[in-house]
């Protein structure tokens, strides 16, 4: 069974059709890229998958569960994590807290437990802390655990945001332009990181990216969308020679 299945997804904002008849099917363990010019509706698709918007038409099914009507935090607890185009960390809390809070859905204790602080509270907090520390260690962020994200360089902030998404222990990871604003050496590190995450955690990744280097070196399958509709899909080589894609990016007259 497919992990993510999107069928006839359409989203309208007033008169604007941001996404039209979008379909996708991802098997577990796939690493797919979503590219397209600015304003093509890529981030809207992410917002729809993560439950931030409710689709006008169409269905999204996650591992067999339809997500219609679910709130974003409920969708997340089904195993979908995402990062944001502009980094959205909680900048006035430490990196460690950022990663702990993202485990809210499996906190395991109630408000009363947090006040009384009995054994249940301590056990749950210890479990959360252990997961967080292991993750920080694996992502080599341990030395920044007590820092505030706002004081970290941009590349590290990206890494923290990915770590935060990973602390949800997702089945599906959505990366929204992870390489935006990074310099070329950071991009190299990012490619390695994403590949490592994909291999060692055995998760499915769907990423939006503009830098072709990242997309071609990581993604097994690429989908190109323009004006909300899929215009091409295939492997990296297929896409680069596809006339529809070239037209979408460069316009009609150039060739």
């Amino acid at each position: 069974m497919s992990l993510l299945k999107i069928d006839g997804l359409t989203q309208r904002f007033g008169g604007l059709q941001a996404v039209s008849e979008f379909n996708i099917e991802m098997k577990g363990g796939e690493l797919m890229g979503l590219i397209g010019p600015n304003g093509a509706g890529k981030t809207t698709i992410f917002n729809l998958v993560s439950g931030f918007y409710q689709p006008t038409e169409g269905t999204i099914t996650l591992d067999g569960t339809p997500t219609a009507g679910l709130k974003p935090h409920q969708v997340t607890s089904l195993g979908v994590a995402r990062t944001f185009q502009n980094i959205r960390l909680w900048h006035d809390m430490t990196v460690l807290d950022n990663i702990r809070i993202a485990q809210h859905y499996r906190m395991g204790y109630s408000v009363w437990d947090s006040v009384i602080r009995g054994r249940k509270y301590r056990e749950c907090e210890q479990r959360i802390l252990k997961i967080a520390e292991e993750l920080l260690d694996a992502m080599s962020l341990t030395e920044y655990a007590r820092e505030f994200p706002k004081n970290l360089p941009y590349g590290l902030q990206r890494r923290v945001e990915i770590a935060r998404a990973m602390s949800i222990q997702p089945k599906l990871l959505l990366l929204d332009e992870p390489a935006a604003g990074l310099n070329s050496s950071d991009v190299e590190g990012l490619i390695k990181l994403i590949r490592w995450i994909h291999d060692s955690f055995d998760i499915t990744i769907l990423m939006i990216e503009h830098q072709m280097k990242v997309v071609t070196s990581l993604c097994q399958w690429i989908k190109v969308i323009d004006f909300g509709a899929t215009i091409a899909e295939g492997t990296a080589e297929d896409i680069q020679s596809n006339p529809a894609v070239i037209k979408a990016y460069l316009g009609d007259d150039t060739i």
């Binding site: 931030f52 974003p72 935090h73 997340t76 809390m93 993202a102 485990q103 859905y105 949800i168």
Partner: peptide, 12 residues
């Protein structure tokens, strides 16, 4: 600090 991020990061 960021309500959208909180909601998407599984905070109810």
């Amino acid at each position: 600090q960021d309500e959208v991020a909180a909601e998407i990061m599984s905070v109810n």
